[in-house]
């Protein structure tokens, strides 16, 4: 089971592949989870959309060439880790991505997750619907007590996968969580609604999607990074999941035809000067909008 394997830009990294648990047969055995309840965090790797963006031949490039752990999923993981510290959940992170996404997934282990699975060989251009179907197959096989994930990914901002996954599983779900508690064997989720906050009590198993305003995800420590090498990361091809043949050939129902720069708002007038000048400019500006009632 332990053998060298090509990872990261074609380099052999013996030191750490030797402790990877790699198995691509029908399915795989997880570490002993019989006595622990498990939270499964579904995570995604995205471009670093907060770095500078440029266009090149119709495709988008970011000044940070390395992908990052989706910020919303990082919040979901942080919350899972806090729940784990307080209530003894085991935290498992699953990510769909290419083999080189293992470095991003390893960040999740470095933050404190116990175990991780990378589902590789996803269908090309998978959209939320495809992702949700693959995750549903994984969750059904894996049987966690809760799924916690970001409410959207920071690149596409779509936000559909959580609801889709919950419907496939026929699990209760709560989106846009800004607070999670575990009490009386149930998850109490504070959700941000349109004009109020809702405390919702969900029995296990359930699915929760998180706002990134829920917490500040911890930065992995050096010790966490070194310890992450010793934690199990399973690399599993999607076609080896139950029903995998169909999953690995799913066609996306939505496709991105083109990406174009957002038409930029032109910067308007910038007023500097004494207080009187500033207030005059403001009164004129406010007066030009009828809804303010200032001009009337």
């Amino acid at each position: 089971m332990q053998h060298a394997r090509v990872l990261n830009s074609g380099k052999i990294q013996n030191e750490w592949t030797s402790i990877w648990h790699i198995q691509t047969e029908a399915f795989f055995l997880y570490s002993d989870m019989s006595q622990d309840r498990t939270i499964l965090v579904c995570a995604k790797e995205t471009p670093d959309t907060y770095s500078d963006l440029s266009f090149s031949g119709g495709s988008v490039q970011f000044s940070n060439p390395r992908p990052v752990l989706n910020a919303y999923d990082a919040s979901a993981l942080e919350e899972a880790l806090v729940l784990s510290e307080a209530h003894g959940f085991r935290v498992h992170v699953v990510m769909i991505g290419p083999e080189k996404a293992s470095e991003t997934l390893r960040k999740a282990l470095a933050m404190g997750a116990d175990e991780a699975t990378l589902l590789t060989d996803a269908p090309k251009d998978a959209d939320s619907a495809v992702i949700a179907k693959i995750l549903a197959a994984f969750v059904e096989q894996f049987g966690p007590d809760a799924v916690i994930m970001g409410r959207q990914s920071q690149d596409t901002d779509v936000g559909l996968a959580g609801g889709m996954l919950a419907d496939h599983l026929q699990w209760p779900w709560t989106t846009n969580a800004i607070g999670i508690r575990f009490e009386q064997e149930a998850f109490w989720v504070k959700r941000q609604g349109d004009s109020a906050q809702e405390w919702i009590d969900s029995p296990m198993p359930c699915l929760i999607t998180c706002s990134n305003n829920l917490n500040d995800p911890r930065i992995p420590t050096l010790k966490g990074i070194m310890a992450s090498k010793k934690k199990p990361m399973h690399i599993v091809a999607i076609d080896s999941l139950p029903g995998g043949d169909a999953l690995s050939t799913l066609a996306p129902s939505t496709t991105i035809e083109s990406l174009t720069p957002m038409p930029e708002r032109a910067a308007g007038e910038l007023v500097e000067g004494d207080l009187e000048t500033l207030v005059e400019a403001l009164m004129k500006g406010l007066g030009s909008i009828p809804e303010t009632g200032v001009g009337s």
């Binding site: 050096l222 990074i225 992450s228």
Partner: peptide, 23 residues
């Protein structure tokens, strides 16, 4: 062309080292 790391030395780092750098 990467205007912060023109010769892409960060790509050559071992994964541990790069993770420590980012943290």
């Amino acid at each position: 062309f990467n205007i912060h790391d023109p010769y892409l030395f960060e790509d050559e780092l071992a994964e541990d080292d790069r993770m420590i750098m980012e943290a």
